[in-house]
Design a protein around this nucleic acid. Sequence first.
RNA 1: CGGAGUGUGGCUCAGUCUGGUAGAGCACCGCGUUCGGGACGCGGGGGUCGCAGGUUCAAAUCCUGCCACUCCGACCA
Length: 439
Amino acid sequence: MRLSRYFMPTLREAPADAQIVSHQLMLRAGLIRQEAAGIYAWLPLGLKVLKKIEQIVREEMDRAGAIEVLLPTLQLADLWRESGRYDDYGDEMLRIKDRHDRDLLYGPTAEEVITEIFRAFVKSYKDLPKNLYNIQWKFRDERRPRFGVMRGREFLMKDAYSFDIDEAAARKSYNRMFLAYLNIYARLGLKAIPVKADPGPIGGDLSHEFIILADTGESEVFAHGDLVEMGAPGPDIDWDGDLEPLVTQRSRLYAASDEMHDAARFEAEVPEAKRMTARGIEVGHIFYFGEKYSKPMKALVTGPDGKDAPIHGGSYGVGVSRLVGGIIEASHDDAGIIWPDAVAPFGVAVVNLRVGDAACDEVSERAYKALGEFGKEPLYDDRDDRPGAKFASLDLVGIPWQLIVGPKGVAEGVVEIKRRATGERQTLPLEAALKVIAE
RNA sequence: CGGAGUGUGGCUCAGUCUGGUAGAGCACCGCGUUCGGGACGCGGGGGUCGCAGGUUCAAAUCCUGCCACUCCGACCA
């Protein structure tokens, strides 16, 4: 992409409305534009990042055996009356009437819809287990939206729903999601901690929140240090095998967010040297809810004994749009965003310091073309602007590499490459520089 | 929803107390000089001062109502 033809409206100063660093940087780097409280337009750069995160989430869901569907944003109120949640949900649910005066709502989540679909088609235990997921915009009319996309009213969420014959089978589905989530965050370049969450009225221990570490995060986490070092299990585990050891290896270690924290237990269970206190952001939540929806909505399957029974369900959410802010909170410096390679909107910026100079233009064009062929998604800064302005805006938007073409270097047959994350620079002949960036 | 605050060119803000010709910096347009970390000079364009009433000879400024947005609290991917 040629920057002169692109749409990347950066701001030198942060709008006064933005309080936290990710929100400020998202506005300054031209990722989003606020249209109303908690409602944002996604501009080209922001959309690219959002799509990349979405794709990583999708790939890891697929790998773990989940199947993608696309559910509507608008849902029928009658479905929610069946589950009993229509009246419970309160003012957070955006209620709408259509021209026939029918009650609709903009979905804040999709347990009812997915249960309705499931019960329409699945009748036998032989068709279980199933896990269906959906990456779709949700709306929750928060009393107080804030922090940019971290707590918007409209947000993109991946929500998966598992269906199993009994609790033991549901636990296996839960384990798959537990591990898939760790893989997602690892691929996004994040350190994530699964913490036990309030299981709610269902009880049991099958509810975890996933918190990514960021110094500016809003919640405090207390955890066993090994939990972070252990990291994600990786993609090559046997997804159909027994995942329980991998899960318990992690879930038995102490981890709690501030509201669930028990200082006495923390000190008793975790040796002093391993006690970790950090700040973080909740970016995922998984839980098992048994027959909560299948019973009232009559999502029944016939078991091996010939009797019908409600399926055991679980649901698994990832805040996709929130992750954009979360990644920035975890990865930025004074100059701007530092995108992990996996989600960067462009892989490399070709910085032509002297647009109009025949030699600089020629080398820049060559680099741009080659990097495109390597699949590095180059952004060619061909703006007729001063070097300082180019560096500042490219640092701000966080492109992982800069390949800098200046008149002095070109005269000597070299270019410079700079790594955004470390500031590390190398001066090399073009071919060698391309090789480094192409890895 | 309770409490606090803010609305003035695209952005950051001054001007409001004490009513009297709407301002600055950045951004934008033109010309020129510049050109390795957000340049400089000269010239220029752009604002129903959130909206609606009211007071007044005169309202960004005072009064009333409304709206929007932000922050603090209780809830949440």
